[in-house]
Design a protein around this nucleic acid. Sequence first.
DNA 1: ATCATTTTAGAACCTGGTACTAAAACAGTA
DNA 2: TACTGTTTTAGTACCAGGTTCTAAAATGAT
Lengths: 198, 198
Amino acid sequence: MPLIERLPKKQRHQHLLKLIEDNPFVTDRELTRELKVSIQTIRLDRMELGIPELRERMKQMAEHSYDQVRSLPLDEVVGEVVDLQLDKSGISIFEIRDEHVFSRTHIARGHYVFAQANSLAVALINDEIALTASADIRFLRQVHLGEKCIAKAYVRSMNGHKGKAKVEVFTYVGEEMVFQGNFVIYRSTGEDNIEGGM
Amino acid sequence: MPLIERLPKKQRHQHLLKLIEDNPFVTDRELTRELKVSIQTIRLDRMELGIPELRERMKQMAEHSYDQVRSLPLDEVVGEVVDLQLDKSGISIFEIRDEHVFSRTHIARGHYVFAQANSLAVALINDEIALTASADIRFLRQVHLGEKCIAKAYVRSMNGHKGKAKVEVFTYVGEEMVFQGNFVIYRSTGEDNIEGGM
DNA sequence: ATCATTTTAGAACCTGGTACTAAAACAGTA
DNA sequence: TACTGTTTTAGTACCAGGTTCTAAAATGAT
């Protein structure tokens, strides 16, 4: 019974857990390169730790998000995409909380409103890589603590299957438009000849 | 050339699209039972319609929701201000960490880079209330995990003590400029006759 | 009858695994 | 040193859910 030097295994388990946590899309083979052990060891480790295989992990994530989008929870959801028609339009809801406002004025910081719109614009593009290239934005009125921002995004143009897409986003609080932005999004199916972009 | 009776195929395509839309987790084999055609026909149909295989669909959903969740927490402090001459210029540093990037590409999400610039532009204005009114921004190249963004902001114009201020921000990684933005900031000493602004 | 389209069939191959068997390496102890 | 128990590695067979390719059969219009 090896009692001393049992650390390596436990350490590896910790390492494995961390690796999978911050990239659930990693395959066993990729893990062997990181952990310097055989693929069988990786698989034994996963078993001991009760970590399902890659496909099962993806399936669970997909089912989870699918259920969330499907159930359209309009009540307490923050920054959630509630409707998404890829390459066409989308809607997301974001509630302004304490942590999003200037403490003195209770007015939302601009970058949160921008972030909601930007995320939605990027999410809309049905491509492997979609990054913001540029944007022209306007904050039409302040958004206050507790208000619910409903962002609606529409794809306005699309240069072929690669290149730029123009997305327009309008954010409302109730009937009032509080933000409007025109985003240019770079899209690419995998090739990486993008010069700029986020 | 069969010109009449071409409906069945188009109808099947419509049916197929609908079936997959309201259950993206369906396998080709399951679809054969629903559509009463062979599995090869299902696969030809998917190809023609550009519908990826089950696993790819699940993967995309999983990646999508993963990035979505990760993108939410945008900290109050975006970047560390290292130099500040009120109403003149300022510099802030922001390091791109795991939580700021797309998991697959390790490229920073645009709104973090925007947030750093926006925060700095607002911080620069020596007023009780300073809110972003509009911005015209350009992402010049992708910023990657681990890179340090150095944002430099300059006040370009100032309409009296109240009104609008124009602030230009340049963000660099090393020598390279990665972002450029022109911000219009509303400023006010307390009165709140601001029509727009964040 | 003939020709194009559409559908079906089948085999080879792929990824990312599971399940199982078995050998080898390692560590501790008698 | 030899024995023992754990840990690691290797290798095979098998699986789902496909892709890719070739080829035959069915269908329908002229």
